[in-house]
Design a protein around this nucleic acid. Structure first.
Length: 477
RNA sequence: GACCCCGUCGUCUAGCCUGGCCAAGGACGCGACCCUUUCAAGGUCGAGAUCGCGGGUUCGAAUCCCGCCGGGGUCACCA
């Protein structure tokens, strides 16, 4: 029986979860789920300056909202780097004792000068090894560096990129532990991945160049290297790495914009990965089909329009009752009372599902269900509030008053009958009604709206529109 | 600048490993039409890539090889 795969996602809580990070998490998650592996969540919070508990909560919240659940990680202790300092220290000491690492007393200022000079010469800066054999005593302030052979090369065997060769002339003795005693990122990552028994490191392309350094560290530590899979970055429309200046980039931002979680999950999965011609995937389908072999190598441009198409698709597909539940906060934000009658709200949602790309749009479009129109849109008014409008409203009101029930089919029959009597098309009466009920030229089917609004409210709005139309036309008698 | 990665419709991509089924398929977006009480949704059709460019190999290349160009990433006692 093969060892189960173990993968991880290691965000640093220095901001909200970025969609790029979310996609990395999603690929790892899907990889693990698809082969009954383990998905570990590790928090890289060694940057005390920028890490906050608030952001940590936000990141966990975003992952949970997306449906990316982890098998190991917070709140279980031991998965935050700040809790693991002792582990790093022990590994560093071992490397030092075995001669794989050495103390360095070069000052940052001195190194900076060398770096500038190297770059001026058009060379990659490389630590010259000043302290490599200097035997710097522990009593002096010092950093700890990893000893790397001057000659030779390090090969990174990437699952996606194949063999990537790095000459040692490009590598240098990098710092494992800073002078202040804190371990560096690259060192923590290696120690963490080793001690957490990670088998596959799936992470952003931007880490590929750092990988040979890490491979050297694995070797020094005497551990086998995990499999690496470097996935391409996500770009903005200008082909530059997606960042805040491209607008909304955090998972929370999309959530607040009313993008449904199924859509963001689906979109992120398909960005850089494919399964034939299939575009729509549920979370389960992604877990079932995901494979590294079909992850692309080219960076992908984030396309909000397609995301919104998927959001609309999922809104159409999701159960109305479920959406009604999710719509609550968006209604409140739109200044509308979230109704206690959930069944009624679900009916409202049913009429809006096919015409909303986001929950924000849906809440906005639902306004007229909660309050009578305050204003009437100018364009449809100009077109339909003709001289005959008031009398047509009157006929409509009279007919409706004598009509029992709000069955859509019966209402349509009533409208068609009246339209025929008046020598009009259905659309004329329908639009007059639509203006009265919603204040707009476009809305869900009016016969369904009447059913949801109720006969009394419908009549009230028709009468209000009749009066408004009369006023608008001057003073009729 | 050095090193590394990448390069198929505007965008996401299938195909590339195992050359011919590809005069390149799907999706978003765009246009038209149909349906229709409006808007959507849905349906049908259409425009849109000579597969970054140039050489080769081959009977045959998007698919293999070489060069070039373009884009991105990494070069910290940041993560």
């Amino acid at each position: 029986m093969p060892e189960p795969v173990r993968v991880r996602f290691a965000p640093s809580p220095t901001g909200h979860l970025h969609v790029g990070g979310a996609r990395t998490a999603l690929f790892n998650w899907a990889f693990a789920r698809g082969r009954r592996g383990v998905f570990v969540l590790r928090i890289e919070d060694t940057d005390l300056e920028r890490s906050t508990e608030e952001y940590l909560g936000s990141v966990l919240d975003a992952l949970t909202w997306l449906g990316i659940d982890w098998d190991e990680g917070p709140p279980t202790p031991g998965y935050r780097q700040t809790e693991r300092l002792e582990i790093y220290r022990a590994h560093a000491e071992r490397l030092l004792a075995e001669g794989r690492a050495y103390r360095c007393r070069c000052t940052p200022a001195a190194l900076d000068a060398l770096r500038k000079a190297a770059q001026a010469r058009g060379e990659t800066f490389r630590y010259p090894g000043t302290c490599r054999d200097a035997g710097v005593p522990a009593s002096e302030p010092h950093a700890l560096r990893l000893r790397i052979a001057d000659e030779g090369q390090t090969v990174v065997d990437d699952v996606l990129h194949g063999r990537v060769v790095f000459e040692h002339s490009q590598l240098d003795d990098w710092i494992l532990v800073r002078t202040d005693g804190t371990p560096t990122y690259n060192f923590c990552v290696v120690v963490d991945d080793v001690t957490m028994k990670i088998t596959h490191v799936i992470r952003g392309d931007d880490h590929l160049s750092n990988t040979p350094k890490q491979v050297q560290c694995y070797r020094a530590l005497g551990y086998p290297t995990p499999a690496f899979a470097h996935i391409p970055l996500i770009l903005g429309p200008d082909k530059n790495r997606l960042s805040k200046r491209h607008g909304a980039t955090s998972v929370q931002a999309f959530r607040e914009a009313g993008i449904v979680r199924e859509a963001l999950f689906n979109y992120l999965a398909r960005l850089g990965w494919s399964h034939g011609d299939q575009e729509v995937f549920s979370r389960e389908e992604i877990a079932e089909h995901f494979d590294l072999a079909h992850v692309g190598l080219a960076a992908a441009v984030f396309d909000r329009t397609k995301l919104e198409w998927l959001s609309q698709h999922w809104i159409k597909t999701l159960p109305a009752a479920d959406l009604a539940e999710r719509l609550g906060p968006f209604l409140e934000r739109a200044g509308l009372p979230a109704p206690s009658d959930r069944a009624w709200l679900a009916r409202v949602v049913t009429t809006l599902q096919e015409r909303a790309k986001t929950l924000v749009e849906m809440a906005e479009a639902a306004t007229f269900y909660f309050r009578a129109p305050q204003v009437y849109e100018p364009a449809p008014v100009a077109k339909f509030w003709t001289a005959e409008a008031p009398s047509r409203y009157a006929r409509l009101i009279k007919r409706l008053e004598g009509h029992g029930g709000t069955d859509p089919a019966a209402l349509e029959a009533l409208y068609r009958g009246l339209a025929a009597e008046l020598g009009l098309k259905l659309v004329d009466l329908a639009q007059l009604t639509r203006i009265a009920l919603t204040g707009r030229a476009a809305s869900p089917p009016i016969f369904e709206i009447i059913g949801i609004l109720g006969k009394e409210e419908t009549l009230r709005r028709l009468r209000a529109a009749q009066a408004a139309a009369e006023t608008a036309l001057g003073s009729p008698r």
